[in-house]
């Protein structure tokens, strides 16, 4: 009978390699990265600006404010989800190739998720900084140095946290769907871009 020269083994995923690949992918696709960052940053900047906007007790004003908040979240969610979906869908071939070389399903998945989370985090940092700056500058123009009496800066940490959570959730959620599909496909189907 045949002698076995080797036996089937299992591969381990290396977190360091996941990080390295994610960062490399962001660096190499710098124009797409910038575009995605811009989308996320704009969304969270507008969110922070709205959340710190001075509010009157007038009911009509309140309703307008909630409407703006709802609409802005909806629009930014659609924008970010679309960007992330597209960016992963364009990489089916690359994912298939990596699977041929022995990439584990979870390696593919984690790389995409880490990449998205970095985008969401950095985008939110930029967005929060820009949003706060705009809010404070406009407040200064309108109210002078007593601006903090008018701007809604109470619960500010919670509001910043909300912007971060939204940014990271939208990017990871948007990329998770195509990433899960691509990582589970047989390599050749992924390389052909079939769904």
């Amino acid at each position: 009978m045949a002698h076995k020269e080797w036996h089937i083994d299992r591969l381990k995923m290396k977190p360091g390699l996941v990080w390295q690949m994610a960062v490399n992918s962001l660096k190499v696709r710098i124009s797409r990265t910038t575009l995605t960052l811009l989308t996320i940053a704009t969304s969270s900047a507008f969110l922070i600006y709205l959340l710190t906007l001075p509010r009157s007790d007038d009911l009509a004003d309140q309703q307008t404010w909630y409407l703006m908040l709802g609409l802005s979240v909806l629009v930014s969610a659609a924008g970010v989800l679309n960007t992330m979906l597209m960016s992963v869908s364009q990489r089916y071939r690359e994912i298939g190739t990596m699977k041929c070389l022995g990439a584990l399903d979870k390696f593919v998945l984690f790389t995409v998720m880490v990449e998205s989370a970095i985008l969401g985090f950095v985008g939110a940092v930029i967005g929060v900084l820009v949003g706060l700056t705009i809010s404070i500058l406009l407040g200064l123009l309108e109210y002078g140095f007593s601006l903090f009496q008018y701007l809604q800066f109470d619960w500010i940490l919670l509001k910043i946290l909300a912007a971060f959570a939204l940014g990271i959730f939208l990017t990871t959620f948007g990329s998770s769907i195509p990433a899960v599909i691509a990582s589970r496909m047989p390599p050749m189907d992924a390389m052909r871009g079939e769904k």
Binding site: W6, I8, D9, R10, L11, K99
Partner: peptide
């Protein structure tokens, strides 16, 4: 995972 090992090694 074993399939990935096979493809890899």
């Amino acid at each position: 995972n074993e399939l990935a090992w096979l493809r890899c090694r």
